[in-house]
């Protein structure tokens, strides 16, 4: 069962095309990652799927309802947490919960139950009277997520929910996302942290409004990079990068912290070619690795740029 089906969705702002003919499906209950650089068109797509932005052409069915014909029905079935932090800072925790609960049509007993649940997931039990502005960012994000799903929607959109949150809280936040997913809620999440993409069931990568790759993390790693990839541990990285870039068996070289990742091509017959080349450099180790998603995306983006130049 697909909970979201997108057909040739396009959004133009004047002469600028923010989202260009995008089609994809999201299965029910999965965590769906939406990756891309800032300005790639992630948020625009999400906003269209939420029914707050009208597409220029194309359509999408969210929870079975068309975003063009019945955006109001769409809104009833979704939760949304935006990039900008969107709680009322000058209200207390409790007041925020009450407000968003009532906006989503929760009153009386059901509101009270939900309030308890939100307090629990955001670790704020006993701190109901605190002003929201005084909370640490990580807690605020959990509260915001709790409020985005306070009405038990079938689908929830999270637009860069973890930007600006420290790694521990980020991990922690993903536990909450997994919990929602295990309850059968479909989660669509945009991010530019690639390690987070590994937690997703399915991913699409979008650049300049176009989808350039899609699949689950495993598929992405195997389908888009066909040749071996090596990791080189060394001291003088810049030197080695310069040297490698000139070789005809090297497709791409990129720096990962202190290490270098080399994507090779069919010209490489054996690993010794690299070993010989770098024999006089101060190299600690060279090993063949399975590509990370970052390798895949850098590879895809560079390939796309080259195609555009040609």
């Amino acid at each position: 069962m697909n909970s979201i089906e997108v057909f040739e969705l396009t959004k133009k702002f004047g002469s600028f095309t923010a989202v260009d003919n995008v089609s994809f499906n999201v299965k029910e209950g999965e965590i769906f990652g939406f990756l891309g650089a800032n300005g790639a068109g992630k948020s625009t797509t999400i906003r269209m799927l939420c029914g707050i932005l009208e597409p220029t052409s194309g359509d999408a069915f969210v929870g079975g309802y068309s975003i063009v014909k019945s955006p109001d029905k769409v809104k009833l079935n979704i939760g949304y947490m935006s990039q900008k932090f969107s709680l009322y800072n000058d209200l207390t925790v409790e007041e925020n919960i009450e407000f968003f609960g009532s906006i989503y049509g929760l009153f009386g007993k059901s509101l009270k139950q939900k309030k308890e649940w939100v307090l629990e997931v955001s670790y704020l039990r006993g701190k109901e009277k605190l002003l929201t502005s005084s909370l640490p960012t990580g807690i605020k994000q959990r509260l915001a997520l709790g409020l985005a799903v306070i009405h038990k929607p079938k689908i929830v959109f999270l637009d860069e929910p973890t930007s600006g949150v420290d790694p521990i809280f980020r991990r922690n936040f993903w536990d909450l996302i997994n919990e929602l997913s295990s309850e059968g809620i479909t989660v669509i999440v945009t991010t530019h942290y690639l390690e987070e993409a590994e937690y997703c069931n399915d991913i699409i990568l979008i650049d300049s409004g176009k989808i350039i790759a899609q699949g689950n993390p495993k598929q992405l790693k195997t389908n888009y990079i066909h040749h071996p990839i090596f990791e080189i541990q060394c001291e003088n990285a810049t030197d080695i990068i310069e040297c490698l870039e000139k070789q005809n068996f090297v497709d791409e070289v990129s720096l990962f912290g202190n290490n270098i990742h080399v994507i090779t091509n069919s010209n490489l017959k054996e690993i010794n070619q690299i070993l010989e080349l770098l024999s006089d450099k101060n190299v600690k180790s060279i090993s063949k690795i399975t590509p990370t998603l970052e390798d895949v995306f850098i590879h895809l983006l560079e390939k796309k740029n080259e195609n555009q130049k040609n």
């Binding site: 029914g51 707050i52 809104k75 979704i78 949304y80 969107s86 009322y88 968003f100 906006i103």
Partner: peptide, 13 residues
């Protein structure tokens, strides 16, 4: 400015 308006727009309000 705060971005809370987005949250209201996406609700059934």
């Amino acid at each position: 400015e705060m971005g809370t308006i987005e949250q209201l727009n996406v609700s059934s309000l």
